[in-house]
Simulated assay, not measured.
Amino acid sequence: MSPSTLTRTVRSASPEETHRLGVRLGELLQPGDFIGLIGDLGAGKTHLVRGVAEGAQVPRSEVASPTFAIVYPYSGRIPLYHADLYRIADEDELYATGFFDLVGSGGAVLVEWLDRVPGAAPREFLRVTLRPTEEEARELQAEAFGARPAALLAAWLP
């Protein structure tokens, strides 16, 4: 993995604010972007994902948790592929799902539980780690690996 080219940390005071941060990120996504999310259960990943999908103009009714399907495709302003690796044991198991065919396929990829299968990430990607700091508050630490992810991060969290 290449060294981080840019890091930003932001505090979210509520689930609604986490959602709004996601909306802003979704508005900025371009085909080929890869966003990896890390955080324990209840860290706010779902709020961020729903916001990203909204920002990418995915109809709210289409957004679901892909925990059992592993990957869920959304049609919006750009194709958005939402993956949940919670139930995946390793890269071989993930490979069997066809996941790696999505990377670089003309859409953006949003992956929850990237820490379960770190090899799922391409060389250049944006990693967002969510940590609860209080009952409703969260800290989001975003790290960009590569030029495009750094530009995305700088536009998202200036």
Rank of each mutant, 00 (worst) to 15 (best):
residue 8 R to T: 01
residue 1 M to S: 13
residue 89 A to G: 13
residue 63 V to Q: 06
residue 128 V to M: 12
residue 48 L to N: 13
residue 95 Y to R: 14
residue 55 G to T: 02
residue 73 P to K: 12
residue 144 A to Y: 11
residue 48 L to E: 09
residue 130 L to E: 01
residue 30 Q to V: 07
residue 153 L to D: 07
residue 42 G to Y: 09
residue 155 A to V: 10
residue 12 S to F: 07
residue 25 L to K: 05
residue 59 P to H: 12
residue 8 R to P: 02
residue 149 P to W: 08
residue 125 F to Q: 11
residue 28 L to A: 10
residue 144 A to G: 11
residue 142 A to C: 13
residue 134 E to Q: 14
residue 122 P to Y: 01
residue 153 L to P: 12
residue 122 P to N: 03
residue 119 G to H: 12
residue 135 E to H: 12
residue 60 R to W: 09
residue 122 P to E: 02
residue 6 L to E: 08
residue 23 V to A: 02
residue 123 R to I: 10
residue 6 L to K: 09
residue 46 T to G: 07
residue 158 P to C: 03
residue 12 S to I: 06
residue 144 A to M: 10
residue 142 A to W: 13
residue 120 A to L: 08
residue 31 P to K: 04
residue 20 R to A: 15
residue 14 S to L: 03
residue 66 P to L: 09
residue 139 E to T: 11
residue 59 P to W: 08
residue 65 S to E: 09
residue 33 D to L: 08
residue 30 Q to A: 15
residue 68 F to T: 02
residue 59 P to E: 13
residue 21 L to H: 15
residue 154 A to Y: 08
residue 124 E to G: 07
residue 34 F to Q: 03
residue 111 V to C: 14
residue 60 R to H: 11
residue 47 H to L: 05
residue 154 A to I: 10
residue 95 Y to E: 15
residue 90 D to I: 00
residue 158 P to M: 05
residue 21 L to E: 01
residue 34 F to I: 13
residue 96 A to Q: 11
residue 62 E to D: 15
residue 115 D to M: 03
residue 30 Q to G: 11
residue 25 L to C: 07
residue 109 V to T: 12
residue 22 G to I: 02
residue 31 P to V: 03
residue 2 S to N: 12
residue 149 P to R: 09
residue 128 V to T: 04
residue 52 V to Q: 04
residue 60 R to L: 12
residue 5 T to S: 15
residue 76 G to N: 07
residue 70 I to H: 03
residue 44 G to K: 00
residue 78 I to Q: 01
residue 97 T to N: 00
residue 32 G to Y: 05
residue 116 R to K: 15
residue 1 M to L: 13
residue 97 T to Q: 02
residue 28 L to R: 10
residue 1 M to V: 11
residue 80 L to E: 01
residue 116 R to D: 06
residue 56 A to D: 01
residue 135 E to G: 10
residue 124 E to T: 10
residue 15 P to W: 04
residue 90 D to F: 05
residue 129 T to E: 15
residue 119 G to F: 04
residue 157 L to M: 15
residue 142 A to E: 11
residue 3 P to I: 13
residue 9 T to G: 05
residue 38 I to H: 07
residue 59 P to N: 11
residue 60 R to C: 03
residue 8 R to Y: 09
residue 5 T to D: 12
residue 109 V to Q: 02
residue 112 E to T: 03
residue 156 W to K: 02
residue 133 T to S: 14
residue 127 R to K: 14
residue 147 A to T: 14
residue 75 S to V: 14
residue 12 S to V: 06
residue 143 E to Y: 06
residue 54 E to R: 15
residue 132 P to V: 11
residue 100 F to N: 02
residue 76 G to T: 05
residue 77 R to D: 10
residue 101 D to W: 03
residue 15 P to H: 01
residue 134 E to K: 13
residue 22 G to F: 01
residue 14 S to P: 05
residue 117 V to R: 01
residue 92 D to L: 00
residue 151 A to R: 15
